[in-house]
């Protein structure tokens, strides 16, 4: 099992090396009781396979969906979770925390 976020970055390199489109999502800010610390990574490939986590599983699905767009157009973006009403995002963090996630393509 891949334990640390660092191992996950090695895997992102391996996926890219194998010819896959790959995106890296990174928790860049947290407020309140966010489940995963700043710097945590989730990596996603073009087929929707993913590894690592940016939350306790609450928002991974949404990040994976966003990553597909990032892999397609190459534009990095920052998405925020946990303020369900004020954003376009339906998903929220049940723990009451908020997180901001930066998603970028490996080029």
């Amino acid at each position: 099992m891949l334990a640390s976020d660092d191992d996950i970055l090695s895997r992102a390199e391996a996926w890219k090396g194998a010819g896959k489109g790959v995106a890296i999502a990174t928790v860049i800010e947290t407020w309140g009781s966010a489940p995963r610390p700043v710097g945590s990574h989730l990596i996603i490939d073009e087929d929707g396979n993913f590894l690592g986590s940016v939350s306790g599983g609450c928002v991974e699905g949404a990040v994976v969906a966003e990553a597909a767009d990032v892999i397609a157009d190459g534009k990095p973006r920052t998405i925020e979770f946990g303020v369900a009403d004020e954003t376009a995002w339906r998903v929220g963090l049940s723990c009451g925390g908020r997180i901001r996630v930066f998603v970028e393509r490996v080029d």
């Binding site: 090695s10 390199e13 890219k16 890296i24 490996v106 080029d107």
Partner: peptide
């Protein structure tokens, strides 16, 4: 992230 930067990071 550029692949070359990712490689250096991992190395």
């Amino acid at each position: 992230m550029r692949l070359d930067l990712l490689k250096i990071l991992n190395e």
